[in-house]
Design a protein around this nucleic acid. Sequence first.
DNA 1: CAGCATCCTTTTTGATACTG
DNA 2: CAGTATCAAAAAGGATGCTG
Lengths: 150, 150
Amino acid sequence: MPAAQPRESRSEYEGACREHGDSGAVIREVLERVGDKWSLLVIDTLAAGVLRLSELQKHIPGISQRMLTRTLRLLERDGLITRTVHPEVPPRVEYALTSVGRTLIVPAQELAGWAVEHQAAILSAREAYDAAHEEINKPENPGLDSRHMK
Amino acid sequence: MPAAQPRESRSEYEGACREHGDSGAVIREVLERVGDKWSLLVIDTLAAGVLRLSELQKHIPGISQRMLTRTLRLLERDGLITRTVHPEVPPRVEYALTSVGRTLIVPAQELAGWAVEHQAAILSAREAYDAAHEEINKPENPGLDSRHMK
DNA sequence: CAGCATCCTTTTTGATACTG
DNA sequence: CAGTATCAAAAAGGATGCTG
């Protein structure tokens, strides 16, 4: 799909139609909810089924409890997941996607799939780029490979 | 089917396959490149065709030049876009998606479409949530509407 | 188990000023 | 026009300790 004006993916949905260049703003706004460090991963994990906090944490390596609960809260706030507290002795809280949240599964997994699929290409491109630029900055340092731009 | 580990789309990558917990790490890593504040928007914008810096900035409201160039650099580093400098008097630099970069168009636009499509639902969910929680914290303050989470 | 609060460190981002 | 450098503000993230 090359070069056209595909930015016309405006749905006839919104009643609060502000402007045209606005879709960028809207996208960014919503994307920030979902485009943070963990949200898509949580969505992706919950796509498999209902999970409790500790289970989610096991499935998402590297996430701290703070970030997990934070992320879950934001997703809940946006109506993408539900939080169900079972009044039992050892508290049990289950998280699940809402119907709106489920609409994110396909895009999320598609992006996740893209990430996995192009991971190698990206990493090698990155190395090539870094190598080329290190040469420019430090032509006399061939073998050192520790840079953490980011 | 509670919490299994489906959705495996392993490529020929890594030899250390514990569980799919790995793909989570990979996804997160790549997603961080593309899941930042502006990358997807830039990809999305470049999907329409080759553009120069100033044009990109016009198409992406709210982005500062610093963030634009930064984002472009990272995308270039990862081999998703190309940067072509035309040796002319008023310097002209054009940015375009690479073939790898173009593979991101579909997922990116799908996500962007999702954002636009569910914008209203998310906003109203958010308001409902905030209203409910404001009531809990400040039942005696029914007119104040200042929430700045996030 | 779930989850909030606090403290502290690392990143990110935006303004501004300054080259080619 | 394109782009870099610097600085300060803000946000994100992580560790830990404390409730219910």
